[in-house]
Design a protein around this nucleic acid. Sequence first.
DNA 1: ATAGGCATGTAAGCAGTTACATGATTTA
DNA 2: TAAATCATGTAACTGCTTACATGCCTAT
Lengths: 190, 190
Amino acid sequence: MALRHAVLVALLDGERSGYELTKTFEVGVSNFWFAAPQQVYAELSKLEAAGLVAGREVVQQGRPNKRIFVVTDAGMQALTAFAATPSKPLAIRDDLVVKIHAADILDPEPLIAQLTERAEEAAAKLVLFEKILAKMRGGLDEASFLARGERVGPYLTTLGGCALQRAFHEWCLRTIQTLGRRAEAERPPP
Amino acid sequence: MALRHAVLVALLDGERSGYELTKTFEVGVSNFWFAAPQQVYAELSKLEAAGLVAGREVVQQGRPNKRIFVVTDAGMQALTAFAATPSKPLAIRDDLVVKIHAADILDPEPLIAQLTERAEEAAAKLVLFEKILAKMRGGLDEASFLARGERVGPYLTTLGGCALQRAFHEWCLRTIQTLGRRAEAERPPP
DNA sequence: ATAGGCATGTAAGCAGTTACATGATTTA
DNA sequence: TAAATCATGTAACTGCTTACATGCCTAT
């Protein structure tokens, strides 16, 4: 099992429709679980069939109706059981880093272009995450919120996302610099 | 395609057997691509059938014979084509972070135990990566190696692995502290 | 003696990706 | 008028994981 628990956990933040969840999962639930929309809908059906979430129809005007879901008691039990099982190691997969591993035999230009794009994406995510953090902690400063806030779970994972994006962003910039300088050194100005 | 390119790229570091590659992929090729041993063997067979790698048998004494692989010209072309295609976004999946998201409704003890384990793993990987880096740069300092070294690709990806592990390690420690303090606050000493 | 490392796979099952499908409403 | 957003899926395919299988050699 995999997505199953990520969906349950995302629903702890409140009732959500499939569509709302897909938005969360496209960003990556604070960047630690990505899923395509189709996967989310499929998983919700399975979770409902298994009785771990309950859905109800919400009639809307001017918009298609939607079904919103909550975690049931059985779902909570499933989460408790999940928390007690040993975690699988962090799984990262990144095309771009694979390319960088082969940087010595590849044309640096497309690599630098892709690194630049990634650096921008990371910067954008950082800005987004900081906003989310500010919203969660409300008027409190971070230390007080972490000590006494009501729901620190999502805050902690978002902090993790920030740490990761920041590290990745810095690495992109540094790698761009290194590849750029080496490319210059190879074909000096005539 | 996915593993395909990661295997090709790993073979750029020199001729490798399936077994040697599985070791690399179990650590995660500098932590950006994980694969199970069976997957590596299967992928090598496919790559050989497609003519992207060439294998040859090495007879050993006191050990089972092995087959070692090199990237062919066709393999190099495949890599060049791969480098030019847009990269998929970084994919991260982590059970433990999913659990932390639900920290508010879960027993903190198993979470703290798992975070501690992860922090130790991250610290161990950092030590390992630093050793690999020192080996790669030989006598040179980092700046000189990055400027003039022969194969900086693996060095750059390993630097990325370090950055990631460092960030993750710090996040684990901080999260342990936060959860620990909150648990104390909830049941104060009698 | 037994555990661990070297060395390579097969087979079955589950998870994730890609492509396709639909249709109304709001915004540019 | 075209594009984007809301809203939900099905179907086919590919990739990944888990379990099983084998056997010799080296170190404790």
